[in-house]
Amino acid sequence: MGPKNIFIAIVAVIAIGTGAWFSSRLLLPPPALQTATVLPAPGELPEFSLLDHNGQAIGRDVFDGHWSLVFFGFTRCPDICPLTLQVLSNANMQLADKGQKPLPRIVLVSVDPERDTPEIMQQYVAYFGDDILGVTGELEELRKLTRGLGIFFEKAVLDGDNYSINHSAVVLVINPDGRLHALFGAPHLAENYVHDLPLIMARR
C-alpha cells in the first residue's frame, strides 16, 4: 500500500467513525431523570392571596416568569426544614458553578402562618440565600394553595401550647407559566437536583 492509499484509508476510518458517533448521539434516548417526576401535563395553580416575606400581597402570578422550587415548612422546625432549604440552596450553588442559567428560585411556604409572620420569614429565608421567597398569610388562603397542590399539613401538639407541624416533605417545581411541572420526593439530596433540574428546565 502506497502513502496515498494509507492516507485515503485514514480519512475513511475517521469519516466512518465520526458518522457512527453522530448517529449514535441522535439515536440515544435523552438522559433519564434521577429522582424527579415530571407531570404528564403541567397543572394549573389555584387562586390564593398570601403575603411575601416583605408583607406584600401575592397571588399565583408570583410564580410567573421563572422556575420555582417550592417547599412547605415552618421556621420552628429544627431538623427537616433547615435541612431541606440547605439542600436546595447547595444545589443552586452547584448549578451556578456549572453555568446553569437561569437558576430556579427557592420558595418556602409556611404551614405555620399563626407564628410565622412576614418579619420572621424575612429573617429566616435570608439565612439560606439571597433570593429565597418566604410566603405566609391567612390560614384559609394557605389552605386554598395547599389543597390545590395536594400538600398535607396538620398541627401535632407537643405539650401545653407548644406544637409541631406534620407536613408533606415534597419539593414542587413550578414552571415559568406558573404551572406545577414536576416534583421531587423526600429525602432530598443536592446531587439529585443538580442532575435533574437542568434536564427538566431544558426539555420544556
Partner: peptide, 14 residues
C-alpha cells in the same frame, strides 16, 4: 427534647 424526624407516605413528622 429528644425527637425523631420520620418520613411516612411523603409526610415529615416529628
Amino acid at each position: 427534647e429528644m425527637h425523631e424526624s420520620v418520613l411516612e407516605d411523603g409526610v415529615a413528622r416529628m
